[in-house]
Design a protein around this nucleic acid. Structure first.
Lengths: 159, 159
DNA sequence: TTACATGCAAACCCTTTGCAATCGT
DNA sequence: ACGATTGCAAAGGGTTTGCATGTAA
């Protein structure tokens, strides 16, 4: 028996999740999940991107349903939501997701991922210091990347 | 001669900034600066908060002017802008600002500040790794604080 | 059958923009 | 006086909501 693909695993998890919640297994929900898991593992997409992609493929899905479904995917641990600056929310696959943080180029807005164990140490220290659990974190580094095709795309971040 | 207060220093810096830019020294601009510097050093406020506070004091100022002025204050290094989740932008004083990061309680939304030198190390490492300058960063830790008056205020964060 | 989901469009919220009136310089 | 700045209200852009219709169970 062949290794199940990430998408197959994701579908199984989603099915269990929907059952447990008593939520319906609609084709729209599965198609959003599928679309997300057809992306590269580390690719980020926003609601409008998913909407256009799916419409172009002939699906008749609404933005509202995509918003709803993405919430379910986040709840079920199948998607991760990011808010890089103030604008649109970006989503990426959460399965086989080893936690990572992001570097965003001020100029070309390109997003690159990294992970540093020292961040875990910081969280542990602050957990003690603040007598607080640490459920999650968000770290974004901003800088000007030196990639040769780096070109300014729009506004500069404010912080 | 007495030590100038933070507000006095801020006003001097702002004045120089406006002169350099060839921008006008309007009473509205100074009153926004003043309002920000009348807060506690580590207090965060949003545009609506400033607007209401100032209106209540009898100022006739518009939201638009507050937005404009805050941009100027950020440019001149007198204010720092934060976007904690997806909602409103929060501002705080930048003078005597030693860089710090934030812990936000999932329940009561209380914001506490901290600083950890290991973050600087992470930035240095990633700067090398990504061949990128590091102009800034944003780190927010989320958790449930164990403060006795911690009560849920509204929605839970999504990431 | 029946209540949950969907699609659509309107409502929302924060922020930005357009413009006539105002006010620094 | 000139043109930047203001206040107001309308427009924008992303997200949420309300409701009639559709559909999984």
């Amino acid at each position: 028996m062949a290794e199940p693909t990430l998408l197959e695993k994701a579908k199984q998890i989603f099915e269990k999740f929907l059952l447990r919640q008593g939520s319906r297994k609609t084709p729209e929900r599965y198609s959003v999940l599928e679309e997300l898991y057809l992306l590269h593992e580390d690719e980020h997409i926003d609601v409008e991107g998913l909407f256009l992609k799916m419409r172009n493929k002939g699906y008749t899905i609404s933005r509202a349903t995509i918003y709803n479904t993405l919430d379910l995917l986040v709840e079920s641990g199948l998607a991760v939501k990011h808010q890089f600056k103030n604008k649109v929310a970006l989503y990426e696959q959460a399965l086989s997701y080893t936690h990572h943080d992001h570097h965003v180029c001020n100029q070309c807005q390109r997003i690159r991922e990294f992970s540093d164990p020292r961040l875990t140490e910081i969280k542990e220290t602050m957990s003690r210091e603040f007598a607080s659990t640490m459920s999650s974190h968000a770290l974004v580094l901003y800088g000007d990347c030196q990639l040769k095709d780096c070109v300014h795309m729009n506004a500069t971040p404010t912080f």
